[in-house]
Amino acid sequence: MGNPMKIRASAKDGVTEIKILMSHEMETGQRKDANGTVIPAWFINEITAKLDGKTVMQAQWGPSISKNPYLAFKVKGGKAGDKVSVTWVDNRGDTRTDEAAVT
């Protein structure tokens, strides 16, 4: 399930800027704990953003993305009140979707 994302989206002059802050450990699988045991890889490997139901951004991620990732991008179109929906899936099959309205 994971913790909630923070999503902000604002439209200006026909362009919507979407900023997403995700709560995730993003373990690389290369680190060891104090006992020398490898900490298993655990990271978001797929992320999708929709604007009013239409997919506007899709990405495949790997373990090189930092913990608590921050993603910002701009898309053409969109207006105040439109719904932004963001979904991530991690390599354990866990997933989370959060929504926000464009301001």
Binding site: N3, P4, K6, K19, L21, S23, K67, N68, Y70, A72
Partner: peptide, 12 residues
């Protein structure tokens, strides 16, 4: 400064 993950902790 843009996108400070501290916001996630503030929410918690």
């Amino acid at each position: 400064q843009d996108g400070n993950p501290a916001e996630l902790y503030e929410a918690t």
